Amino acid sequence: MLNSRCPETGIKLFPKNGFKPPTPTNPNPGKPGPTDGSSLRGFLKPEGESGCIISNGHWYSSGTCATFTLSKAPFGGYNLKSSKGYCGVGKDGYLTCGRGVTGGQFTYDKEKKLVTYGGVYRWSAEERPAHFKQVPIRPGYGGAVEFKLKFV
């Protein structure tokens, strides 16, 4: 027997013909994902306003929109995720995305393309983002600027 730390069973090797990674659920952001509707990719934009939501969950009017993934949650609703990580509403009441965020139960109206949280269709912010300024948003009414959040 050779001197090895490898187990005698349970070793898995790539096939001889190579390894092909799985196809992404939707290579075209903004277009519907798989036919079962379990996952969608697109951008979050405040309806009727300039700018979009960036990967940390803030509203930004300068730069590139972040791509978000909406995927069906195990117990209903949807999980929302950006390149920073899952998104949820923090103790401060604002949308946040990143490491350590456990996610939240969002809902998605496929016909109107609206993302909601806690059954509320409106989102709000204290102000509109100025050039290079990020503005936090929260579900519900109460901010100086109110809008619906479109998933396009």
Rank of each mutant, 00 (worst) to 15 (best):
F147H: 10
C52Q: 08
T96P: 04
P15D: 15
P129D: 02
L149M: 04
K45R: 15
P46H: 05
C52R: 09
E49A: 10
P27H: 01
N79A: 05
G42S: 03
F132Y: 03
Q134S: 13
Y78M: 03
N26S: 13
L44H: 05
T9I: 02
A66M: 04
P7F: 00
V101F: 05
L114A: 05
P32G: 06
R41S: 12
G140S: 05
R122P: 00
C65H: 02
P7M: 02
E126D: 15
D92R: 10
S39V: 09
L114W: 02
F68V: 00
S55I: 02
P29E: 10
A125P: 03
G90E: 13
E127M: 12
A125Q: 04
C97L: 08
T96R: 11
S61T: 14
Y94P: 11
G18D: 13
Y60P: 00
D92G: 12
N17F: 09
F132A: 07
T69K: 08
F75M: 11
N28D: 14
S39L: 08
W123G: 12
G51R: 01
F43I: 09
S39P: 01
G103T: 03
A66V: 04
E47C: 08
K112E: 15
M1H: 14
T35S: 13
F147T: 07
P74D: 13
G118K: 00
S62V: 07
E49C: 10
A73C: 05
P21N: 14
G103L: 02
C87Q: 06
K113N: 13
K72P: 06
E47Q: 14
S82E: 07
G118L: 00
E8M: 02
K12C: 11
C65K: 10
R122F: 04
K84R: 10
P139I: 00
F14A: 14
A125Y: 04
L70S: 01
T35P: 11
V135I: 11
G142Y: 04
G143V: 01
H131A: 14
G42P: 10
F151I: 05
D36N: 13
F132I: 01
S124I: 00
E49T: 03
V89S: 06
E47W: 03
P21H: 13
K45Q: 09
C97D: 14
V101L: 06
G85F: 03
L70H: 00
G30T: 07
T25S: 15
G104I: 00
Y108V: 04
K91Y: 04
V152S: 15
L80P: 08
G42V: 02
